[in-house]
């Protein structure tokens, strides 16, 4: 079936099978491999993108459900030369190691700050409940989010 949506500002019309996850369209069809798949039960959050500006797990959304929608992925929030404040903060605070959970973590963190729920350490920790990181112990991720919240 035909689906139209905008990804990182570019409009796409794609023919997708109904049983296609949004994450598979992003990665395989559009080549946006910054969005990762870390689990198959919709728990790890590595596939988090923004749909209509809000963080969602793209492994728990069908491509056909987002017909007419607007999606932003990690590739769409900043560039190497013009980083988003959250990207900048992750680098400055050493909030990543292997980098695999990082795009999803950053997308969740941006939504968290934009919702106004990143006021203190406790709320940041609670707000990142939907993203699993195995490398950092979260310590520096929490620092980075609090840091970015000041700048966003």
């Amino acid at each position: 079936m035909n689906v139209e949506f905008t990804v990182n500002g570019t409009a796409h019309t794609l023919d997708v099978e109904p049983n296609t996850l949004l994450v598979d369209v992003l990665r395989s069809t559009l080549g946006l491999t910054g969005t990762h798949v870390g689990c198959d039960t919709s728990q790890c959050g590595a596939c988090t993108v923004h749909l209509e500006g809000r963080a969602v797990k793209s492994c728990a959304v069908l491509a056909c459900q987002v017909d007419g929608g607007t999606i932003t992925t990690i590739e769409g929030i900043g560039t190497v030369d013009d980083l988003h404040p959250m990207q900048e903060a992750f680098r400055e605070c050493h909030a990543l190691q292997c980098g695999f959970c990082t795009p999803g973590m950053i997308m969740s963190a941006i939504d968290l700050v934009e919702r106004g729920e990143a006021g203190d350490e406790g709320s940041v920790r609670a707000g990142l409940e939907g993203n699993i990181c195995r490398c950092t112990g979260y310590h520096n991720i929490v620092r980075a989010v609090l840091h970015a919240a000041q700048r966003m």
Partner: peptide, 19 residues
């Protein structure tokens, strides 16, 4: 020193096997 590798990881340009 801030990490060299981070620029690709924070922008989605990491290149993992499944990519």
């Amino acid at each position: 020193v801030l990490r060299k590798e981070d620029r690709r990881f924070i922008t989605g340009f990491g290149r993992y096997t499944d990519d």
